[in-house]
Amino acid sequence: MKLPAFDYACPETLDEATALLAEAGGDAKVIAGGQSLLPFMAFRLAAPSLLVDLRKIAGLDGIEVADGEIRLGAMVRWRDILDSAALARALPLLPAAIGHVAHYQIRNRGTLGGSLAHADPASEFPCIAVLCGASVDVVGAGGHRTIPADELIAGPMETTLEDDEIIVAVRFPRWPEGRRWAFDEFALRHGDLAIAAVAAAYDMDGPHIAHARVAVMGATDTPQRVPPAEDALNGRAPDDDTFGAAAAAASAAIEPTEDLHAGAAYRRALVGTLLRRALAESCAREREAAE
C-alpha cells in the first residue's frame, strides 16, 4: 500500500509553518507523530498536497508543572507523559489514562497535539482534557487564541481548528490536594481503541463528595461530561449506593454509538459497569494510600 503523493516541508519556526498552511489553503496538513495520519493516508481518508512536519520547531515538547497550571507542549509524546514523575504527582489521572493508549512503539511517537487534532472519539487524551477543563493554545497565520478543550472537539474526527492553525500547548488547572480520580476502559486488546471508557475526579468536603466531574469516551461520538452522573455524586457519601446511582445515571444519560464491535445497549451497560468499578477503585486507592 503506497501512500498518496505530497510535498514535504520541515520548517524551524511556527511562523513559517503557519504561513505554509495558510498558503496551501486547506490542502495541507501538519504532521506530528504521524501515528494517525499515516494510517489515514494509507486508507486514502486523507490525501494532503503538503505535509508540514513540526519536528524541528523548538519549544513544543515541554512538560511544565507550575503552581497555577500544568502546561504540556503539543509535541509531548505519550512516552514522555508516562515517564514524567512530576505529572504522576500533580495529575495522576493523566498517566493512568495514557497507559491505555495504543502500543509500545506508537506511544514512542504519538503526540498529544495530534490526538486532540485527530479527535478520535475513542482516544484518551481529549477525554481527560475535557474532564479537567483544559485550555488549548493554538497559533494561526493571524495570531494566537485559546480554545476550551470541549469547544475544540466538534464531532467525531472533527475540530473547530482553522486550516492554518497549529495546536502549540494544552494547559490543565492544578488540582487541589487530595482530589480523588477514577479511570477505567474496555478494549478488545490492551492498547486497542476503547469500546468505552470513563474518567472521573472529585474532592471530599468532610464526608461528602464535592466538585464531581464524570466523562465518557469511546461510547459516544465525542468525549463528553455527563452532568446527571456528577449530580448523583455531589453531596453524597462515597459508597456503593452513591456509585451505583451515578453509574445508572451515566448509563441513562448517554447516547451510545454503534459499530461492528458493540451495539448501543451493550455500550450503555458497559459505561455503567466501568463507572461503578472505577469509582470504587478511587476509594480503594485512598485506603491503600492511608495504610
Binding site: Y8, C10, G34, Q35, L38, P39, A42, L51, D53, R55, R79, Y104, Q105, I106, N108, R109
Partner: peptide, 19 residues
C-alpha cells in the same frame, strides 16, 4: 515493521523515510 530509531522501537510503516 518495527525498527529502532534513536533508541526507541517504532513502526517503520508509520514514519516517512525523510523523517
Amino acid at each position: 515493521c518495527t525498527v529502532i530509531v534513536d533508541g526507541r522501537p517504532v513502526r517503520s510503516c508509520l514514519m516517512f523515510a525523510r523523517q
